[in-house]
Amino acid sequence: MLDVVVAVVTTALTNGALYALATIGLSLVWGSMGMLNMAHGGLLALGGYAAYTGSVQLGLPLPLAIVFAMLAGAAMGALLHLLVVRQLLRSSGAGFETAVMIATVGISIALQNALLLLYGGQPLGQPFDVPGSIPVGAGAVPWLNVTIVLVSVGVMAAASLLIARTKMGRAIRATAQNRDAALLMGVPVQRVYLQVLALSGALAGICGVLVSSITQLTPTLGADPMLKAFIMCVVAGLGNLPGAIAAAFGLALVEAAMQFAAGARWGFPTLLLLVIAILIWRPAGLFGRARIQRL
């Protein structure tokens, strides 16, 4: 019995950390600019493959390969801003919310397909690995999972410090809370958007490395974490970072428990049913403040 508990908790913590990391990147972009980045999953995959290229093809040491993955994600995020978001903000006005969703769906597919063409469809092994495990009672917790949780928590802590304490973070929050006022303070809003997308891309990059280390490298590796991140965002209310993290760990626990109780394929459907029930009960999300609908 105890080993089952250890296994469920290990899975829940590992997945929760990964979901949280995927979610904050998504939620940050939504909170600052009202943009749902459907290409976030594609950025995860890009990060995973970039780390692979860095360590296997360029021979970089692993920590540098991870930095390389974050840089690749950040560059793609910046590119997304320059080529798509900037133009849409200028041209589409009130239709921005949906226009940017459609455009990023396109980018996402193009990105995944480009990875497929570059690296082939065969799943590759991510070189990021930590061998061994810690015995806990009757079960064991692999060091890899411990590392994933620690790295995720570390990255999230660094990101929150950046947002809470630095001048750049203050400008990001100011722009999110009142764009016009930020402009009046002299904040170059377009540059802030660029920074936000680059930061979210970097978070997606490292998240992709971690996800592929417990699964495999495929061009669609980001699809599942992004799907879960969507759900976390719905439950927590988009743009609510602490809520998203709490939802990520909570729902990962439910999912892991369901997977052990009823089989792997029922984990996510149960989760979704739970979320739908929550939404019917609280349409603004579990932690979301009921926002007054702008007419």
Binding site: R170, R173, Q177, N178, A181
Partner: peptide
């Protein structure tokens, strides 16, 4: 500006 336009959560 009119209406202050403060950053409400700061």
């Amino acid at each position: 500006p009119q209406g202050d336009l403060l950053f409400p959560d700061m």
